[in-house]
């Protein structure tokens, strides 16, 4: 299976302070890869580095070509889209406007219309609230909106930052259900940053464990789930 995203020796810094010290990772075409680690391990920074949101060095290839020097909005146009931690909802805008913003890099009006209806199919609750102010929705609904908004740009690779953060277990289950459906039906690859390692390792095929800006451990989801270190440190059993 070929990789949609491949990073070699990825490094990143906030200002003068290095945070990531050379990470190698790959996301296979149509695959789901999990990025695990404690607070401050550099998971979010890795995502932000891939999207050129922080100062970044290293060789990153997306669909086989180098993306060095590309800006965030170039990368979004190329189909690499992030669902940010905290959901990044446009709070003062309606649900529908949020979805239209998600499709900002597209120009096909009819396709956008169809995709909005398709999102209401995946997430019926959004369809009921299309004219509602997005900021007034619950956390779970906003997370669904964030995913739907990202999908509106017809992404090939979704970077998901802690989609389960602060949500009730039932909602988390629903969201992960939809994510696997989307992965299966639309062939969207996913790089998933998660605190909830159990859940992440269930949906992912491959996983990386970050520790202070380096890959401490990697392997298939089964291997990591079986590893004593991971179990003790992150899985809690």
């Amino acid at each position: 299976m070929s990789a949609i995203l491949e990073a070699r020796n990825l490094r990143a810094a906030y200002g003068d302070r290095p945070v990531i010290f050379g990470i190698d990772l790959a996301v296979p075409e149509r695959g789901i890869v999990a990025l695990l680690g404690a607070n401050g391990a550099g998971k979010t920074t890795t995502l932000r580095a891939l999207l050129a949101e922080v100062r970044t060095w290293g060789d990153v290839r997306y669909q086989g070509q180098s993306i060095a020097g590309k800006s965030t909005q170039d990368l979004v146009r190329m189909g690499m889209v992030m669902v940010p931690e905290g959901r990044g909802t446009f709070t003062d805008f309606t649900v529908e406007e949020n979805l239209l913003l998600g499709a900002y890099s597209r120009r096909d009006k009819d396709g956008i219309r169809r995709d909005i209806e398709r999102m209401y199919g995946y997430f019926p609750v959004l369809g009921q609230r299309r004219k509602q102010r997005a900021g007034s929705m619950s956390g779970g609904e906003q997370q669904m909106l964030a995913i739907a908004r990202a999908l509106m740009s017809r992404p090939k690779l979704l970077l998901l930052d802690e989609p389960s953060l602060g949500l009730a277990p039932l909602i988390v289950q629903e969201i992960f259900g939809i994510l696997t459906t989307i992965n299966r039906e639309e062939g969207v690859s996913m790089l998933l940053v998660e605190q909830d390692a159990v859940r992440a390792l269930k949906v992912a095929t491959y996983a990386y464990l970050l520790e202070t800006g380096r890959v401490a451990l990697e392997g298939t989801a089964e291997q990591l789930a079986a590893s004593d270190d991971v179990r003790r440190a992150y899985l809690g059993y």
Binding site: L51, E53, T72, Q73, V76, R77, V81, M82, P84, G88, T89, F90, L101, G102, Y104, S105, R149, S153
Partner: peptide, 8 residues
């Protein structure tokens, strides 16, 4: 910040 992420 969010706007950047949708390609604006």
């Amino acid at each position: 910040a969010s706007s950047r992420l949708v390609g604006i």
